[in-house]
């Protein structure tokens, strides 16, 4: 959906982030140091840069100073506030602290892409079209009525497609913190969604984990 530049000097982490974000439908370009990152930003024109602060050579903050129009999510290992404030003051769109969960990263990537309008406003699969801006779903051009929670659940599953989401994670992301019910609620809503859209084989139940939207 979007072209992302992943800047991290740690090979395992860089590859991990690339793999996950590729699975959910983005195009990922890895960069392992500041100099490489700067030249790739120029030549590839990515929609978003995921930038580690502690880089050999040029630090992440230095790179951020040189960027002007590219959205940046910076990754820091420091728990102190200083780094976060510094990064946000330099114009970063968001930050994430190591160690992080992949669902957290995909959510933030999606949020920034949507905010900066670099993401497609609709997603289509099979005979279904999901319009994220008007929050409507169409099946064969016919409007399907979903409750707000059902739509949020569908959106979360699509944004994390090919990755399994635990029921707890879904509860946290869709119902946020105002709900303290049990995970059965999630099962009920998933059933509703499968039934309304007729996508039983798309939303898979992953044994002992949760649900995964496959495409």
């Amino acid at each position: 959906m979007a072209k992302l530049l992943i800047v991290d000097d740690e090979l395992p982490i860089n590859r991990l982030v690339c793999k996950n974000l590729t699975l959910v439908g983005h195009e990922c370009i890895p960069a392992y140091d500041g100099v490489q990152a700067l030249s790739l930003i120029k030549s590839e024109q990515p929609d978003l840069v995921i930038l580690d602060v502690m880089l050999p050579g040029i630090s992440g903050f230095e790179i951020m100073k040189l960027l002007n129009s590219v959205p940046v999510i910076f990754v820091t290992a420091k728990t102190g506030l200083d780094d976060r404030i510094k990064g946000l003051a330099l114009g970063a769109d968001d930050y994430i602290v190591k160690p992080f969960e992949m669902a957290e990263l995909t959510a933030r990537v999606q949020a920034v892409l949507r905010r900066t309008k670099r993401d497609a406003s609709a997603f289509s699969f099979d005979d279904i079209t999901v319009d994220f801006s008007s929050r409507n779903v169409y099946k064969n051009g016919e409007h399907i009525v979903l409750t707000p929670k059902e739509f949020a659940l569908l959106e979360l599953l699509i944004n994390n497609r090919n990755l399994a989401l635990s029921r707890e994670k879904i509860l946290e992301k869709v119902w946020e913190y105002d709900y303290c019910g049990d995970t059965r609620t999630v099962d009920v809503h998933v059933q509703q969604l499968r039934h309304k859209l007729g996508i039983k084989d798309r939303i898979k139940t992953v044994f002992k984990v949760g649900y995964r939207f496959e495409i």
């Binding site: 982490i13 991990l16 982030v17 190591k98 969960e101």
Partner: peptide, 16 residues
């Protein structure tokens, strides 16, 4: 950094 990698890859094996 290793913690992130360990957690991330475990998550990856588990869910992807």
């Amino acid at each position: 950094t290793p913690l992130t990698a360990i957690h991330g890859y475990a998550e990856y094996i588990c869910g992807a």
